[in-house]
Simulated scan of single mutants.
Amino acid sequence: MLQIAFESPDQPEIISLIADLDAYQLSLYPPESVYALDLQTLLQPHVKFAVARDAANAIVGCAALVLTPAYGEVKRMYVKPEVRGLGAAKKLMALLEQAARDEGCPLMTLETGPSQPEAIALYQRQGFERCGPFGDYRDDPLSVFMQKSLR
């Protein structure tokens, strides 16, 4: 049984999970194509940080929603490999989408990479469609940009 809730990212178990995510991203892409948010950014009031915990209360996944006036961007989506396929990512995305809707966000966006076909498939199942770069992103062959209208 998974529990999904918003929590502070400033916890040792979460910091360790984010380090795993960084190592994973850097195994797939060069550093200049990894658009990671640091802990200080994740602690800002316009960022909602969601955590997935297993039945033993261990943290097994996380995702963040960065709210701007124009959109909410999904960042730091990660589920430990050993618990993938149990619905954690889908539940994390549902919580982020509800938070975006609660804030009146018209659009959800995200950036992922072509070396993560499972992630792209998950986002497509959640209603996201490919789009061009948004915000401060530049066109990058190692980036896949996606969006979902909440209207």
Rank of each mutant, 00 (worst) to 15 (best):
I15A: 08
K80W: 04
L2P: 12
D10T: 04
E118D: 13
R53T: 14
P114C: 11
G104D: 10
H46A: 11
V79P: 02
P117L: 14
R76S: 14
T112S: 13
K91H: 02
I18R: 15
P30T: 02
A89M: 04
V79R: 01
E73Y: 05
L37K: 12
S8M: 01
A70N: 08
Y123P: 04
L39T: 09
L107F: 02
R76L: 13
A63W: 00
A64H: 03
P12N: 08
D54C: 04
S33F: 04
G61S: 05
P45R: 15
F6R: 15
P31D: 01
Q116S: 15
G61L: 07
G72Q: 05
L21R: 15
L21K: 12
L86E: 07
K90Q: 08
V60Y: 07
V34Y: 00
A100H: 07
Q3C: 07
V51T: 10
G87S: 11
M93D: 06
S16W: 08
A56D: 10
V74S: 05
T109L: 06
S115N: 13
A19I: 06
V74D: 08
H46D: 14
T68I: 05
A121Y: 11
D10M: 09
F49W: 10
L37F: 09
L110K: 02
S27Q: 03
D54W: 06
P106C: 01
I15L: 15
D10W: 04
A99V: 02
E32F: 03
I4E: 13
L39M: 14
K80D: 06
A36N: 09
L28Y: 01
L17I: 06
Q3S: 12
Y24W: 01
P114H: 07
D38I: 01
G85R: 07
T41K: 12
M108K: 05
